[in-house]
């Protein structure tokens, strides 16, 4: 039974979309400004629960900017502001009385380059829970193991939990970062080009991991690699830069449709590698 489940999990994304799924996050006319400059213009995009949504598009089209708006990473930039509506389970994420810490706990993020803290593997993973007041060793141990198992890294590092995380290989480091994001038990995991610094073998491992995580988490991935979007995602959003340099979403559909029969000519040009 378990084996069967495992097999089902690894069915290519495009073939296994449940027809009716719940919308976990919804962006509505979401715009991001840096001062007077509009980086993202009125993006309306549903993120389906327990599915993988890929955001693709040429460089500079605002993919990462959009992704960062999802867990309010723009709060860090002094003159950035967000307009429009963004909801998680129907609740707005921007607005008075919303604690950004809470938003980021529920919506985790994995970055382009593996960024483990210069600490031991264990401390990397315990960092998040400790932030939220979990200090009991037994509980921490459990969380560490659970998240490492979740990120398919447990067997590789179980004997060296107290060694520096920086001694791991690039691919392992990135899986550690995924595990670290999982330690605070998020509902959504945002991934900003998670494989761009990795070799093909490590990339495939991360992609397999994403397909497994999809059973329990909602994943949004920004990627330059169209093949990757095609391989892992269930839905794909295509973004482009408008003449005024603001990024907009031009097409959103099932991944299989985007990659076999896109409706927008620009999407077609992009996925066939003719964009320039």
């Amino acid at each position: 039974m378990m084996q069967m489940q495992a097999k089902l999990d690894t069915i290519p994304a495009a073939l296994s979309v449940a027809p009716a799924s719940i919308v976990k996050m919804q962006a509505e006319k979401l715009s991001v400004y840096y001062g007077a400059f509009r980086a993202i213009a009125e993006v309306t995009l549903p993120i389906h629960d327990r599915h993988i949504t890929a955001i693709i598009g040429p460089s500079g089209c605002g993919k990462s900017t959009l992704l960062r708006a999802f867990n309010r990473m723009h709060d860090l930039i002094p003159n950035a502001r967000v307009e429009g509506k963004l909801t998680l389970d129907g609740e707005p994420l921007y607005g008075p009385g919303i604690d950004v810490v809470d938003v980021r706990r529920r919506i985790g993020m994995v970055f382009q380059r593996p960024n483990p803290f210069p600490k031991s593997i264990y401390d990397n993973l315990a960092y998040g829970p400790r932030l939220y007041g979990v200090n009991k060793k037994a509980t921490l141990d459990d969380l560490v193991e659970k998240s490492l198992r979740g990120a398919a890294l447990w067997d590789e590092v179980r004997d060296k939990l107290h060694q520096s995380a920086l001694a791991l290989s690039g691919g392992q480091q990135q899986r550690l970062c995924i595990a670290r994001a999982l330690t605070v038990e998020p509902e959504v995991v945002l991934m900003d080009e998670p494989c761009s610094a990795l070799d093909p073998v490590a990339t495939i491992k991360i992609e397999d991991l994403m397909r497994e995580l999809r059973n329990n988490y909602t994943i949004v991935i920004v990627t330059h690699n169209m093949q990757q979007a095609a391989r892992v995602s269930d839905y794909t959003a295509m973004m482009m830069m408008r003449p005024d340099r603001a990024g907009e979403m031009i097409e959103f559909d099932l991944t299989r449709t985007i990659f076999t029969n896109p409706q927008d000519k620009r999407t077609e040009d992009y996925v066939t590698g003719r964009f320039g």
């Binding site: 867990n71 990473m73 860090l76 950004v100 810490v101 809470d102 980021r104 706990r105 985790g108 993020m109 970055f111 382009q112 380059r113 960024n115 483990p116 803290f117 210069p118 600490k119 960092y127 998040g128 932030l131 939220y132 970062c177 670290r180 994001a181 330690t183 605070v184």
Partner: peptide, 27 residues
């Protein structure tokens, strides 16, 4: 210290001062 390191901490919901003290300074 790579910006990514700070973001990694903030993305977990860590406040600024804690990020600086626990992540940036040791790095």
């Amino acid at each position: 210290v790579p910006r990514a390191l700070r973001e990694g901490s903030l993305a977990l919901g860590a406040p600024d001062w804690r990020t600086s003290l626990v992540v940036l300074l040791p790095a």
